[in-house]
Amino acid sequence: MHQSIIHIALVVKDYDEAIEFYTQKLHFKLVEDTYMPEQDKRWVLIAPPNSKGTNILLAKASGPEQEAAIGNQTGGRVFLFLSTDDFWRDYNDMVDNGIEFMRVPNEAEYGTVAVFKDLYGNLWDLIEMKAK
């Protein structure tokens, strides 16, 4: 058996502001943006540059319950983990682009890591793993 996670839904306030943040500030690529008239919503996929793994589905909140989850999908824990091949290149670029870091860079046993917030407040790890 072979299985994999292909998409993770991220609840957002607005498709276009989310696309702008992720593509302009984090340099993600817009994989797909398709309008689905039968549901009156869009299927919007983004991914980090040169990623061959899981995509993020930007899912516009529909209703108060989903709106309440925007920015806090995991109860304040780090939600997503962005792996990089050059921590300092990406960290400095993110700082230059106004990304807010909640925890300063740290050299841990497993690699270099810092925690940042996306435009809605979800917490992410930026991490460069040490070579094994």
Rank of each mutant, 00 (worst) to 15 (best):
M94S: 06
G75N: 00
I127K: 02
Q66P: 03
V104F: 14
Q24G: 06
T34R: 15
L10Y: 05
K52S: 09
G71E: 04
D118N: 04
V31H: 06
G98T: 07
A59I: 11
N72F: 06
Y120R: 01
R89P: 04
L80S: 00
E20S: 13
A68E: 06
Y22K: 06
A47G: 04
I8P: 02
N50Q: 12
D14I: 06
E32A: 12
G53D: 05
A114T: 02
L82M: 11
I5C: 01
R77N: 14
S4M: 14
D40Q: 15
K117E: 08
I8D: 07
H7E: 14
Y35Q: 01
W43R: 01
F116R: 01
F79E: 06
A68R: 08
D85R: 09
Y120G: 08
L10T: 02
Q24S: 13
A9M: 13
A68W: 07
E38C: 00
H2E: 13
W124L: 05
I70G: 00
F116H: 01
L45Q: 13
V12N: 04
Q24A: 12
H2V: 12
A69W: 05
K132V: 15
A47N: 02
L30S: 11
F101A: 01
D96Y: 08
G111P: 01
T74P: 00
K60Y: 10
H27E: 14
D96M: 14
W88C: 02
A59Y: 14
F21H: 03
L123W: 01
K29R: 14
T54C: 10
S51Q: 01
A61D: 02
E109F: 15
V78R: 03
G111Y: 03
A68T: 04
P64M: 15
M102Q: 10
T23E: 03
V104N: 13
L57I: 11
G76M: 02
V11S: 01
D96L: 14
M94V: 07
E67V: 08
Q3V: 12
M94Q: 11
L30N: 11
V12D: 03
E67Q: 11
N50T: 09
M1R: 11
L57P: 05
M129P: 14
G111D: 05
G75E: 00
Q24N: 12
F87A: 08
K29Q: 12
V113F: 02
K41P: 00
Y91A: 02
Q3S: 13
